[in-house]
Design a binder for these strands. Structure first.
Lengths: 337, 337
DNA sequence: TTGAAAGCGCTAACAT
DNA sequence: ATGTTAGCGCTTTCAA
C-alpha cells in the first residue's frame, strides 16, 4: 500500500496542496488561512496519520535535518556516551544523527565525508584524525557547519570543543608528587595528536615545576596498532624492567585498563606505595580494589557545547553572517580515589 | 558555491543527462554506450569530483540506502559494540545507519518509528521494548524489512536474532551446583521481557534438575527505574539479610556491576566460598580480583546474523517473494574464571 | 547508441 | 484566502 502524500490529504479536504503545505509548515497564520480550514485539514492529517515525505522535503528545501557524526570508534565508551547525549539533544531540535566510525583509517574517514556530502547532511560533528584537514576545510568552504571535538588538528580553523589536556595531567602528576612519589612513570600511545602530546607536556610540566627531572626510561610509548594482549605484554615487561617506579600515569583509559591487566599478571598490588592514575575515567576504576584515581573528562559538557555550536551553525547557515568560530576548552577534574 | 549536478557533467561532456545517468549507474553496458563515451564521461566525473545527490536519487527510486537502528541505549556497551559492527557491515553494502535510543520510553520509541518512516529508511533493526508490537506489525504490513534482536515480543511474527537465555543461566547455575553451592541467589530486574524471564527459568530449571528447591527469599527483583545507587543500596540490604547465600547469579551485566559495588561496600570477598556469575560479560569481570565468571553473548555473531537478515530482506523487498521470517537463536558461552 | 521528457512529493513564488 | 505551477536532481520509459 502506497504511503499517503500531500495530494491525498488535499483531495480528502477539498483544498489545494498549497493549503495543506502551508498548514503543515506552520505558515497558515501568515497566509491567513481560516481557522476552520486549519482545524479541518489538521484533523484529516491526524486521522489518516499522514507524515510528509522527508526526502521530498529535503530535495526541495536543500536541508535534510540530519547531522553526520564521525568518530574513531562508536563502541568506545567515551564516544558512545557522547553519541547518546548528542543524539538526544539533536532529536529535540528535530535533527537525526547518522554516524560512522573511522576506525582510525584515513581512507575510510575521507570516504565518510564524501558519503555524508552525497547524502546532503546539514552539518558535521567530527572527532577528527590527522589527515582530515583538507576535507574539513572543504566543508567549511562550502559553508557547511562543522564542529570538531576531542582532537584538534593543527592549522585548522574550525569550531572546536576540547578539554584541557595539559591541565589534566599536570593536576594528576602534582597529586602524585604531593604523595611523595619520586619515580612517576608515564604510559602513552604513539598517536600523532596534539591531545596526546599535551598530556605528556602536562606531566613533564608538573615534574619540572617540582624540580624532578623527567626520565625517558620510565616513559613508555605503546604503538596504537597493538592488540590488547600485545599492549598488556609490553606493559608487563616495562614494569618488570623498571621496579623503581612508584607511580604511573596512563594517558588514556584504555591503556590504564591494559595496565591493570598487566599488574594482575605481575601480582603487583596497587597501594600507597604504588599509585596509579588514569586519564579519562571508567567504571572499572571505581570498582577496582583498591579503586583507581582518574582524570574525568566532562562528557555531558562536551556534548552540550558540541550540540550548541552545531545548532548555532545550522541556524545561521543561510544568513549572510560569517559563521563565528569558537574554541571551547573545558576543564577536566581529578577524581581522587 | 552550488554543488555540481548531473546537468553540469552532461554539459561539460556534451551529452545528455541520460547518458551520464546510465554511466553512473553501471547501465552503460546494457545500453550499449560506446566505450569512448564511457571513459570520457567517467573522467569528467572524476576530474570534477561529482557525486550524485543521494536525496534526489532517493526521491526518485524510493530507497534511501539507510537503515534505522533503534536500541534502548546506544551508550550501553552491548549495544554500542553491536552498533559498531552493524555500521561497519552495512557500510560495505552501501548502507548507512541512523540510530536512536528509546531510553525505554515507549512514546519516544513510537516517535522514532514514525520519524524513520518519514525519512523513508529502507529497513529497521530494532532491539524492541514492550508496547512496540503494533508499530512493528505496521512496518511489516508495509513490506518494510525489519529485524528484531536482543528481545523478543510475544505474538510478533518477525525475523529475530536472540541468544538462548534459558541455556545460559542453566549452564551458569549448574556450574555453581557442581561447585557444591547450596544457596544460589538470583538477582534480576522487573522488566516484562521474555528474555529476562527466560533467564530466571533457566536458573530454576537447573535447580530442579538437581533436586534443589528454588527459594524465593534469595531471588531479588530490582526495579528497572532504580538509579544505580538505589540498586546498590538494595543489594547491600539483600545480602546482609541473607547471609546463607553462597553464590549469586546476576541476570544482567549491569546488575552484576551494582552487585560488585555492594560487595565492596559490605567488604564481602568473592572466593570459592562465595561465587558470582554475571549474565553478559564485561571488561570489569575479567579484571576484578578475583575475576568473575560470566555468560558471554556472542556479539559478533549477533551483529552478523542481524545484518545478514536485514540485507536479505532489503534485497527481496521488491520481488514478489513473501519475505521469509527467520528465528535465529544463538548459544551463549559460560566463561569460567 | 543517445536524447527528450515525465514524474518522485514537496515548497513557495506568483496568480487569482 | 486559496489555487496553479515551476522546479529541486535524479532515473527511466519511450522515441529517434
Amino acid at each position: 500500500m502506497k504511503p499517503l502524500s500531500i495530494k491525498d490529504i488535499a483531495k480528502k479536504a477539498n483544498v489545494s496542496i498549497t493549503t495543506v503545505s502551508f498548514i503543515l509548515n506552520g505558515k497558515a497564520e501568515k497566509m491567513r488561512i481560516s481557522q476552520d480550514m486549519i482545524t479541518k485539514v489538521e484533523n484529516i492529517i491526524k486521522e489518516l496519520g499522514f507524515r510528509p515525505n522527508q526526502v521530498a522535503r529535503s530535495l526541495r528545501t536543500g536541508n535534510t535535518k540530519t547531522i553526520g557524526l564521525i568518530v574513531e570508534d562508536i563502541s568506545n565508551p567515551f564516544f558512545a556516551s557522547i553519541a547518546r547525549l548528542i543524539e538526544d539533544k539533536a532529536y529535540r531540535h528535530g535533527y537525526k544523527i547518522i554516524y560512522s566510525s573511522t576506525e582510525n583509517n584515513i581512507d575510510k574517514a575521507k570516504g565518510l565525508i564524501r558519503m555524508f556530502k552525497a547524502r546532503q547532511v546539514d552539518g558535521y560533528i567530527i572527532a577528527p584524525m590527522l589527515g582530515m584537514e583538507e576535507d574539513i576545510r572543504g566543508l567549511i568552504k562550502d559553508r557547511t557547519p562543522v564542529v570538531v571535538f576531542d582532537r584538534h588538528l593543527p592549522g585548522l580553523e574550525v569550531s572546536t570543543v576540547l578539554v584541557n589536556n595539559i591541565e589534566g595531567t599536570t593536576m594528576a602528576t602534582e597529586s602524585l608528587i604531593r604523595q611523595g612519589k619520586k619515580n612517576i612513570a608515564f604510559v602513552t600511545v604513539d598517536v600523532e595528536a596534539d591531545e596526546i602530546k599535551d598530556r605528556y607536556s602536562g606531566y613533564v610540566k608538573a615534574l619540572k615545576a617540582n624540580k624532578i627531572k623527567p626520565n625517558d626510561k620510565i616513559c613508555k610509548l605503546i604503538p596504537f596498532a597493538n592488540s590488547a594482549d600485545e599492549t598488556t605484554a609490553e606493559l608487563v615487561t616495562f614494569f618488570t624492567e623498571n621496579p623503581e617506579i612508584d607511580a604511573v600515569l596512563f594517558a588514556t583509559n584504555y591503556l590504564a585498563v591494559r595496565g591493570l591487566f598487566a599488574f594482575k599478571e605481575l601480582n603487583k598490588q596497587i597501594s600507597d606505595d604504588f599509585k596509579v592514575i588514569a586519564y579519562d575515567d571508567h567504571d572499572i576504576f571505581k570498582l577496582h580494589s583498591p579503586s583507581i584515581s582518574a582524570v574525568y573528562q566532562p562528557i555531558e559538557d562536551i556534548a552540550d557545547q558540541v550540540i550548541t555550536l552545531i545548532l548555532k551553525g545550522l541556524s545561521t547557515v543561510d544568513t549572510f553572517e560569517e559563521p563565528e568560530l569558537k574554541q571551547i576548552v573545558l576543564s577536566s577534574t581529578l577524581i581522587e580515589r
